[in-house]
């Protein structure tokens, strides 16, 4: 990677510049994005009660999400202690979600082109394995729901099932740099076109 590419990457890596990004989720139990933005009164209760300092406060962006809580999976994944759902005063975080397997804050996705296990598997398939690569398995080992949410196909390829809560611990522990090989697509904000309700309203011509 050239020097200019590194600068570009650094300049584009500020999480708070964009309202949508992969690896950026709402806290567990969050209602759908439009309702969440209407209900969240920015009281910081969930930020304060989070024992792992996972939930962070968003800055002012063009979509007025200033003060809303976010989890940045690349820095730290959610530990699913479910403290935050119990304190929300307006129901922006659903009080009924108390069991950590019920949360769906996103879904993990493995990038085949940079995942170390995939690269090793491809090398061995092609018969050019030279012994310089090793099995990684970080995402599988760190997952709180291993064998349920994530399993290893052929004992090597990580695969995600629909039981994934989207906590982001796998993203946190993924060793590939500069891009993570496993990323969280946040719930309701799966891709850029669907992200952020003000943007989606604009596209529908409602605003």
């Amino acid at each position: 990677m050239s020097f200019i590419d590194k600068i570009k990457l650094f300049l584009n890596s500020f999480d708070e510049n964009e309202f949508f990004k992969i690896n950026r989720m709402r806290p567990p139990g969050a209602v759908e994005e439009k309702l969440f933005m209407e209900l969240c009164v920015r009281c910081s209760k969930c930020i304060e009660i989070c024992p792992y300092r996972v939930i962070k406060r968003s800055n002012l962006t063009k979509n007025f999400e200033v003060g809303t809580p976010y989890i940045y999976a690349e820095e730290k994944g959610c530990r699913l202690c479910m403290n935050c759902t119990t304190v929300c005063p307006t129901g922006a975080l659903d009080k009924d979600v108390t069991y950590f397997r019920d949360t769906r804050i996103g879904v993990a996705k493995v990038d085949d082109t940079i995942c170390l296990n995939h690269l090793l598997y491809n090398q061995e398939e092609a018969g050019i394995a030279d012994g310089t690569m090793a099995v990684c398995n970080q995402c599988f080992n760190s997952c709180p729901l291993k064998f349920d949410a994530i399993y290893l196909e052929d004992m090597i390829l990580p695969r995600i099932t629909d039981k994934c809560t989207g906590c982001g611990i796998c993203t946190e522990s993924c060793p590939t740099t500069p891009k993570k090989a496993i990323n969280i697509l946040p719930n309701g904000m799966a891709d850029r076109d669907e992200a952020g309700y003000i943007q989606s309203l604009k596209r529908k011509g409602l605003r």
Binding site: V41, R42, C43, S44, K45, E48, I49, V87, P89
Partner: peptide, 24 residues
């Protein structure tokens, strides 16, 4: 104790700023 002056929890008692609640 938990929360800020927008919404405060004392034990099991929740106290909220009426402004925040009316907005929501």
């Amino acid at each position: 104790f938990n929360g800020s002056f927008i919404s405060l929890t004392v034990g099991n008692l929740a106290i909220s700023d009426p402004l925040a609640v009316f907005q929501a």
